[in-house]
Design a protein around this nucleic acid. Structure first.
Lengths: 219, 219
DNA sequence: ACAAATCCGTTGTATTTACAACGAAACGGT
DNA sequence: ACCGTTTCGTTGTAAATACAACGGATTTGT
């Protein structure tokens, strides 16, 4: 676990804490490290969760399949990102989505109770971590609102433009790499893959953008 | 302000605190009460926010208009609900939505810094409030995910069923009153009003539900 | 009580999307 | 290197939706 301390230092959860502090907090917060192979489920819809998770290595997809096999993708998780934190409140019910490893991944599990309940004395940084957690979930909240904004657009083209613009802003470049293939992007934007594929090509032919696989350039 | 203390006691923000504690916290948290007439803006997209708000009385709509006048509705706010809390983090940027009073309303403004930064001694309940805030934003997070789930449906009918079912679960009854008129519901579900209106009538004719204005009964 | 404004259902048409199916290209495992 | 699988663009057709316009009913403001 210790080898990931430098990574943890750069996460939103431990922002402002030093490496020694983090190392000592690991046991205090009941940290465990679990590894998942490509395609494995990290979390399953309907489960209860008592942990706050941080992705140490790899890449995860948050998705959901309904009874008829329709898949919808909520988002992806990259190294250093926190997840699961929205389900540790007392009356939060069960998980609404699956979380799946899209490549071999390693995940930190922190005992939620120990994270949220400030411990008597030992950890000076506990208050900091709780505040960090609040800021992190705030940010996730805002990004959900932005996603709702994209997906509320009426046409496939508008959804694509909205999503790609947001991504360009986030990556601070007109050259972006997205974490989805075509089918996943369609599931993310809630449109048909083939229709979306056609729209992308039309936009390319009109000179709005270029792309090759999952790399896009906005013009 | 004091007359709202019993109401505040039943909000998610002050859950677990007694009335005297709340009364004393009001000044500690920099509380102000502002009133808004029907149709007035409580918050505007693009503004910065340094407060956490609680609706004391009335009803608010969270919405957004784009350049072409397309409106999309994110949700509504009822008495006792917290809002604005996702925008008080240091790097949260400006507001993504407008908040508008749909009827005469009264709103508490709490200074975010004072809510989040635990004060030296005085307020015993400060830690509690921060934790409550985390739980509240968690819940909002999950409800955004549910909304995304509704809105990701492909057809208008599926969106309606998804939304009405969620609402029935929330109101714990097959008889529900929704906080939107037809146009607002359409803007909420990101569909055309007239198409939605037709779909609703078709569903009624098929015996799936009954409705009269904004009251619905699921069958 | 009256005029104006809003709300809601309805209709017809144009546009957009979903769905199914196919083949070429790229990828992955043995 | 080979074969099976996945990915992606393309096409045609059916279905669903958006858009515009209208009228009756209800509500609102004065």
């Amino acid at each position: 676990m210790e080898k990931y301390v430098p990574l943890l230092k750069n996460t939103k959860l431990f922002a402002g804490a030093g490496e020694e502090d983090i190392a000592s907090m690991l046991s205090c917060l009941g940290a465990r490290l679990r590894e998942f192979g490509k395609g494995e489920y990290v979390l399953r819809q309907g489960e209860r969760l008592g942990d706050i998770l941080v992705l140490a290595e790899g890449s995860l997809l948050i998705q959901k399949d309904d009874y008829w096999g329709n898949r919808s993708i909520l988002g992806n998780i990259g190294p250093g990102e926190i997840f699961g934190e929205a389900y540790v409140a007392p009356e939060s019910g069960t998980l609404l989505n699956d979380v799946i490893a899209v490549e071999d991944s390693a995940v930190f599990f922190f005992d939620a109770k120990r994270v949220i309940t400030t411990c008597p004395s030992a950890c000076r940084f506990h208050t900091l971590v709780v505040q960090n957690l609040f800021y992190a979930i705030s940010e996730k909240n805002r990004s959900l609102v932005r996603k709702l904004d994209s997906i509320s657009r009426r046409t496939t083209r508008e959804k694509l433009i909205s999503y790609l613009s947001e991504e360009a802003k986030k990556q601070n470049s007109a050259d972006i790499t997205i974490p989805y293939n075509r089918q996943q992007l369609a599931d993310y934007l809630a449109v048909d893959r083939s229709a979306m594929s056609g729209e992308l090509c039309r936009m390319r032919d009109e000179g709005l953008l270029k792309f090759e696989k999952n790399r896009f350039r906005l013009l």
